Every structure is written in C-alpha cells, then in structure tokens.
Amino acid sequence: MQEKGIEIIKSSGEKMLFSLDKLRKSLKHSGADHNLVEQIVSKVKEELYEGITTNEIYNRAYAILKKNKSVFASKYKLKKAIYELGPTGFPFERFVAAILSNSGYNTSVNQHLNGNCVNHEIDVIAEKNNTTTIIECKFHSEEGRNCNVKIPLYIHSRYNDVKAHWETLKNKNALDAGWVVTNTRFTADALAYGKCVGLYLLSWDFPKNEGLKDRIDRLSLYPITVSTLLTNREKQFILSRDIVLCRQLWKNKFLLDHLGISNLRKKRILDELNQLCNS
C-alpha cells in the first residue's frame, strides 16, 4: 500500500512513491513482532512529508528497533553494514569468500593467475566438486551507485584470458565459471550481458532468492559491522585482524579483551553475537 502518493527520495537521488508494505516487510525481516512493526509504521506515517529521504525513514525505524532490541536493529541495518566494510574493497572480498566457505567452497583471496596474454590478480578463487570459479568483487562505499555494463564486459574478457591459459595446463579442476559480486545492484544492461555470455552476477538482491541478502540471512553470516554495540573504532580493529563475520568474532572472543572492553559490555556484545549467529 502506498501512503497518499507521497514521493520520497532514494540514495541515488531518484524519486519514488513511499510504500507502507515495503517498510513493513523490511521491519518483519528484522525479527520484530507485529506490535513493534505497527508501532514503527505508525511513527513513520506521522512524520512523513513530501521529499523525505529513504535515509531519514531508515533512521527513524532503526532508532526504535535499537531501543527495543539490538539484534532487530542489527538485522535491519544489514545493507548499510555491508557499506561499512569499506572504504577499501578488501574486507568485502573476505566477506564474499567467507559466505562461499560456509556454502562448501574452499576459497582463497587475492591470488594471481596467468592468462593467455597477461597475469591477473583475482579477488576470490572458489573450488568445489573438482571445479574452480574465479570471482571479481566490486565494492561501493556510497549508496546509490550501481554496476553498469562496463564491469561484466571487463570481467568477462579477463575470465576468457585466464580460461584460455588454464585449458593448456593439466589442472585437476575445470575452470567452469566467472562471477561478479557487488554490494549494490547491476543495471539492466549489465544483467542482460551477464546472462548472454554466461557470467554469473550476484548483487544485493539478485538472483531472486539467491542474492547476497538471502544468502546472509539463510546462513546467519552477518558481518561484524551490523553490531549496534561495537564502536566504529572497535569494528575497524577487528576487521584489521581479518575477522569479517559475527560468527568469526564469536570464535575469537579474545579479540574483545584487546579492546579493553568491560566484562559487562563484553557480555552484552557476546549475547548480541550469539543471537545473530543462531537466528
């Protein structure tokens, strides 16, 4: 249901009609119960005005969720949390590798492979069932930016160069696929090109039911940046230790001791991590 035809402004600057149904759906996705969802919807409706930004609406909903239960706020901020893996793309590459590792792949990051023409630095190499997949990660730290057709065009040419050399070697694994993974979205032309040449494209919500959002929720593989209790400085310290998942931090709890966190606060953080890892 759209609310009285009120136009809101997306992070890209594009205008769209505000939808109560979309807001409800995202709030329910956080785990909030019906009463809390309706409380937030009612509050947002009261404060709507023509030209309000999606970021302002998000901030209002996030504040109420955080006040009620931090784990709800953590899940609600998932998309923004992935942007917070920046400013460089390296933590995102490790995050993508971690998702694939938890899906049965053996992964390695930042490896060099010879092509028929030149050498290529590959963001992620994933192996499973005697096949090898090479993956390029395109991270954007600013909301509203999409991957256009130039990205899959470029990656496909690199994949073909690597594959041409790969097939001259006696590798035990077949090089069967090239992927492009982004934390934003692909343009229509980018999707059409990927489909045409057989390049697998993975974005925030594509493919349907298999996008990053779906994989993260299904496997409870939340990045540490979703935490509402860790400060930005603490998150950057943990990321610098190659820990990108809440699940990894749970297994390496000793890192919290290096941050000088009090026992009471440490208990709260661990409780939040536990809920996220087992949601």
Results as ranks from 00 to 15, higher is better:
residue 3 E to K: 14
residue 4 K to Y: 11
residue 8 I to L: 13
residue 11 S to H: 05
residue 14 E to I: 04
residue 18 F to D: 09
residue 18 F to L: 04
residue 20 L to D: 13
residue 30 S to Q: 12
residue 34 H to L: 13
residue 34 H to N: 15
residue 35 N to R: 10
residue 35 N to M: 10
residue 37 V to N: 02
residue 38 E to M: 10
residue 39 Q to V: 03
residue 40 I to G: 06
residue 41 V to T: 12
residue 45 K to Q: 14
residue 49 Y to N: 07
residue 49 Y to F: 03
residue 50 E to C: 01
residue 50 E to W: 00
residue 52 I to S: 08
residue 55 N to W: 07
residue 55 N to C: 01
residue 59 N to F: 10
residue 63 A to L: 12
residue 65 L to F: 09
residue 76 Y to H: 09
residue 77 K to P: 00
residue 80 K to L: 11
residue 82 I to A: 14
residue 84 E to P: 02
residue 85 L to M: 05
residue 85 L to F: 04
residue 89 G to F: 02
residue 92 F to P: 12
residue 94 R to I: 06
residue 99 I to D: 02
residue 101 S to Y: 08
residue 102 N to G: 07
residue 105 Y to A: 11
residue 107 T to V: 15
residue 109 V to G: 13
residue 109 V to T: 15
residue 112 H to M: 02
residue 113 L to H: 05
residue 113 L to Y: 04
residue 116 N to W: 13
residue 116 N to R: 12
residue 116 N to L: 14
residue 119 N to Q: 14
residue 120 H to E: 07
residue 122 I to C: 08
residue 125 I to F: 08
residue 133 T to W: 01
residue 138 K to C: 05
residue 138 K to S: 05
residue 139 F to L: 04
residue 140 H to W: 12
residue 154 Y to S: 15
residue 173 N to V: 02
residue 173 N to Y: 10
residue 174 A to E: 14
residue 176 D to G: 07
residue 177 A to M: 03
residue 180 V to H: 05
residue 181 V to T: 03
residue 189 D to R: 05
residue 191 L to I: 10
residue 191 L to H: 11
residue 192 A to Y: 03
residue 193 Y to A: 01
residue 195 K to V: 08
residue 196 C to F: 12
residue 197 V to W: 13
residue 197 V to M: 09
residue 198 G to C: 10
residue 199 L to M: 14
residue 199 L to R: 04
residue 202 L to V: 14
residue 203 S to C: 09
residue 203 S to K: 01
residue 204 W to S: 14
residue 206 F to Y: 15
residue 210 E to N: 10
residue 213 K to P: 00
residue 214 D to W: 09
residue 214 D to V: 07
residue 215 R to F: 08
residue 217 D to A: 03
residue 218 R to I: 00
residue 227 S to K: 09
residue 231 T to D: 05
residue 232 N to D: 15
residue 238 I to M: 06
residue 239 L to R: 11
residue 239 L to I: 06
residue 239 L to D: 05
residue 240 S to I: 02
residue 240 S to G: 10
residue 240 S to P: 03
residue 242 D to C: 02
residue 248 Q to M: 13
residue 249 L to D: 02
residue 250 W to D: 12
residue 260 G to V: 03
residue 260 G to L: 04
residue 261 I to V: 13
residue 264 L to E: 15
residue 267 K to W: 00
residue 269 I to D: 00
residue 274 N to P: 00
residue 276 L to K: 08
residue 278 N to K: 09
